[in-house]
């Protein structure tokens, strides 16, 4: 009887349909609404920015794997994780960002942040966010060259982000220039992918339904941010913006649902994830209200990334029967 290919293996012998690819491409799908909104508001150039970020990320990934003598280069480079890192990096730069800066960011994200730590699953910090922070510090002019949404019109007008206006000109100026509704829909200057809270929330809902992410990190992140900024707003609503403004402005939604929830760089257990989300929200609030930068989401998540091993150690699940 021809049974040459019979397998001797350890149980279980069946597997759920879930694969790494499915998890990763679900994230890509969830980013599509924000990609569409960004293209509509800022024009076709953002497609080029995203394309260059993704292509360079995949090429850096494949190149590194080749140098490292990896044996499954094609499937690993296209497992979706490099695509997500590239996309999220693009989401975190201004729409006018020069292409060469995007490529540098891609290199920092994939090679320095991800692969020097061992590649997928082993990196301590969120690759896209390290890329963003590196670019922000290295190229402050290009990385803060904000423009107003043009809606396909050719002439891009420069303008400041709501959080930037809040930092430099105060609450009254923000209230004159932006409404909560415009922040929610995304008709504001800002990073390529962060402007539309609505589009991001649609994607976030998809990830929650598909169980790719759980509610713990986003709810504690945004909840803490709201409580923290809300306290100051209650004390002095003439100086401090209201909590809703803080949630729909800047990278809070993008960070809470798409970056802080990155599985590799967030805690393993639910309790740990709640602590992590709390820390992200608190640090974001502190940086926004009292720090030198108008926006603190990226710094907050990276700082909390560093605490993940410690959080993991103290939040192990309780075994049954103790």
């Amino acid at each position: 009887m021809n049974m040459k290919r019979i397998v001797i293996a350890s149980s279980p012998h069946i597997h759920s349909e879930d694969t790494l690819h499915r998890v990763m491409y679900d994230v890509v799908i969830a980013l599509i609404p924000a990609m569409i909104i960004s293209t509509v508001f800022f024009g076709l150039r953002v497609l080029a920015v995203m394309g260059i970020a993704v292509i360079s990320a995949v090429l850096f990934e494949a190149g590194f794997l080749k140098l490292a003598g990896h044996d499954r280069i094609r499937s690993t480079a296209f497992d979706g994780s490099a695509i997500i890192a590239g996309l999220l990096l693009a989401f975190n730069v201004p729409p006018t960002c020069p292409f060469w800066i995007v490529i540098i960011g891609s290199f920092i994200a994939i090679v320095v942040t991800k692969h020097t730590f061992g590649g997928l699953g082993y990196n301590l910090f969120n690759p896209a966010l390290v890329g963003r922070i590196f670019l922000l510090i290295s190229f402050p002019v290009q990385m803060t060259a904000w423009t107003k949404p043009t809606f396909w019109k050719a002439d891009a007008l420069s303008g400041a982000t709501p959080l930037g206006v809040l930092k430099t000109e105060g609450l009254a100026a923000v209230q004159d220039m932006f409404s909560i509704q415009s922040n929610f829909i995304g008709t504001i200057p800002g990073c390529l992918g962060e402007i539309s809270a609505a589009a991001l929330l649609i994607g976030a809902g998809y990830l929650l339904v598909r169980k790719v992410i759980s509610w713990h990190i986003p709810v504690f992140f945004l909840g803490t941010l709201a409580v923290f900024t809300g306290l100051f707003w209650l004390i002095d609503s003439g100086t401090y913006a209201n909590p809703l403004f803080h949630i729909v402005s800047g990278g809070a939604i993008l960070g809470a649902f798409f970056m802080a929830t990155d599985m590799v760089t967030s805690p393993l257990t639910r309790n740990g994830q709640m602590i992590f989300g709390f820390g992200c929200g608190l640090l974001t609030g502190i940086i926004r209200l009292f720090g030198g930068y108008p926006e603190g989401v990226a710094f907050a998540i990276l700082l909390m990334n560093a605490t993940v091993p410690l959080i993991d150690r103290y939040t192990e699940v309780k075994k049954v029967g103790l």
Partner: peptide, 21 residues
């Protein structure tokens, strides 16, 4: 593949263990 720390094994373990760790 490598562990991507998604925590599904921990959620799934009926004995409350951390299989990935």
């Amino acid at each position: 593949g490598p562990c991507i720390r998604c925590g599904r094994c921990i959620d799934g373990c009926p004995m409350g263990l951390m299989p990935t760790s």
